[in-house]
C-alpha cells in the first residue's frame, strides 16, 4: 500500500491526523504510512528492508495504538521508517504488519516533525459509509 489518504488536524501541543480506509487492517497500514509521511515525506524514502511486526490489542483503538507505537519504536531505536505497509488479521486476534522500510540517513532525510509516541488521546475508530476512520494524536 502506498500514498495513504490522511488529513492533518491542527493541534496546539502535538500532531494530529485523520485517516480513512476500507477496513481496519487497511486503516492501520494507512495510519502507519501517514505517520511516516508526516515526519519524513514518503517521496524521500525507498523500501529496502522488510520488517514484520505483530500488533495486538483488545479493541480497534488499542490495535491502532500498538501499530503506531511499533512504528515509533522502529524509527527511534533502529532508524527504520516504513514506506510500504500491509496489515492482515491474525487468527485469534491481532494483526500482522508487513512493512517495507528505509533506513534513516541524515544526509538524505530531513524530519518535518518527529513523533516520540502514539497516544490513546481521544482515539476512536469509527465506522463510516466508506469503511473506517480514526483521528490519531501523536506525541512530539
Amino acid at each position: 500500500m502506498t500514498a495513504p489518504r490522511y488529513t492533518v488536524v491542527d493541534h496546539t501541543g502535538d500532531f494530529a491526523f485523520e485517516v480513512e480506509a476500507a477496513d481496519l487492517p487497511s486503516l492501520v497500514a494507512a495510519a502507519v504510512l501517514a505517520a511516516a509521511d508526516a515526519q519524513f515525506g514518503l517521496e524521500s524514502l525507498s523500501a529496502i528492508e522488510p520488517v514484520e511486526v505483530a500488533c495486538d490489542g483488545a479493541d480497534p483503538e488499542l490495535l491502532l495504538f500498538s501499530a503506531l507505537s511499533e512504528a515509533v519504536f522502529l524509527a527511534d531505536a533502529r532508524g527504520l521508517v516504513p514506506v510500504t505497509a500491509e496489515a492482515a488479521a491474525v487468527p485469534g486476534g491481532g494483526l500482522l504488519l508487513r512493512l517495507g522500510c528505509d533506513r534513516l540517513d541524515p544526509a538524505r532525510h530531513a524530519a518535518r516533525v518527529l513523533f516520540k509516541a502514539a497516544t490513546l488521546h481521544g482515539l476512536r475508530v469509527e465506522r463510516t459509509a466508506a469503511g473506517v476512520r480514526a483521528t490519531v494524536v501523536m506525541d512530539t
Partner: peptide, 9 residues
C-alpha cells in the same frame, strides 16, 4: 516514552 507506551494498555 517507551516505558509510558508499554504501560498505557
Amino acid at each position: 516514552h517507551q516505558v509510558c507506551t508499554d504501560f498505557i494498555p
